[in-house]
Design a binder for these strands. Structure first.
Lengths: 201, 201
DNA sequence: TCATTTATGTACTATCCGGTATTTTATATC
DNA sequence: GATATAAAATACCGGATAGTACATAAATGA
């Protein structure tokens, strides 16, 4: 076992559970908006004091960066699983649509998209992580589309990179609209229309 | 002439030009983001004191509402002119694309879209105005698409309302991406792809 | 000249923010 | 029990925010 999980031998034993605090922060950032959640509010919600939080995470930037890390490994990873699942074009697109429109966790939006749209308000570390995830997502979309093209499923004249960007943005748009309370049936209609460019001759 | 433009007969003459202050506010909100521009900053940029601003506009909500009004009549009106121009489907779509991607004023984004995406941070009056404009835009898109359908230019099976929403959101997406520094050629590629659903059998 | 009226800017309030200095508390070691 | 260590919370700091009380300046009318 690592030595990070065994407390120090001496001194007052810590009562703060950093994992639980991170859960609180991630959820709060996610349900409302990173720019609208203060460290004070997170401390209050987690039942800890501000210095405890700062000792664990260093700064607000450190906290939001850690919350985004957690979100990536807990939630976004599922999207990457879908993309790398090796299913066909239509099946994968359907799975993406389901994830965006039916997964109850996306009901209040996507933390990554919220951070990306307010990127200028983030600290440098969190912003850098947003850029990393953005690049990874773009690469995953491109790999998926490339394999679809290799399989002859997607004969369009569009470049794989442009298609990847387009696909990612349409998914983001749908999730954001869903979070803003738009009619789900209408969103599905629009997303299906947008993605029809991949499945039409 | 109205009596709003002649100053009061007595008392110290006003030196503040509310129109110019409104220009400053609109530009500042537009160039950066409504949530990132304080009334203090606007006063400083306009060279006036805070009480002067509050006497003229009542509150921050009043100011941002007035700035949005001005934006609607100075900028958004041009989009409505395009939509009601009575040109054919492809010509109008091309004009919309040009407006979104080539008009230099859209280079830093659209104030309306910025306010809409941060609606929860606005005061009640400004928020209500955002909703009004949203409805008017939706109606204008729908009218345009209905006339295209009547002319037989757009035989798709999609409802006019869904198409209107889709069209509006794709334009908004393109403008927002342009403001975020995305490669213009790539944006044009994506927007053209998105709108191809209107001009394809 | 002097009162009235209205706009002006200075200076202030109360509140929130991110971040921290300081004290107190709870443990292990001696 | 005494001491060292580390985590805890209280209470604070400086700065920014939206909004305002108040004194003053500049005009008109008498």
């Amino acid at each position: 076992m690592s030595d990070a999980d065994k407390g120090p031998a001496r001194g007052r034993p810590r009562t703060m559970n950093a994992e639980q605090v991170l859960d609180v922060a991630m959820t709060a950032y996610w349900q409302s908006d990173p720019a609208d959640v203060s460290v004070n509010a997170i401390c209050q919600m987690a039942g800890i004091s501000k210095p405890s939080l700062y000792r664990a995470f260093g700064s607000e930037d450190g906290l939001s960066r850690a919350a985004l890390d957690r979100y990536a490994e807990r939630v976004l990873s599922e999207m990457f699983v879908i993309l790398h699942g090796g299913q066909g074009l239509r099946q994968t697109l359907d799975a993406l649509v389901d994830f965006a429109l039916d997964d109850p966790r996306m009901e209040t939006g996507c933390l990554f998209y919220k951070m990306r749209s307010g990127k200028h308000r983030l600290g440098p570390d969190t912003r850098a992580r947003v850029d990393e995830i953005e690049a990874a997502a773009q690469a995953a979309y491109a790999t998926f589309l490339q394999s679809a093209r290799d399989a002859g499923d997607w004969p369009g004249e569009l470049s794989v990179e442009a298609g990847a960007k387009y696909l990612g943005e349409q998914i983001a748009l749908a999730i954001t609209q869903r979070a803003s309370g738009e009619d789900p049936a209408r969103i599905r209609e629009m997303l299906t229309l947008a993605l029809s460019v991949f499945t039409r001759p």
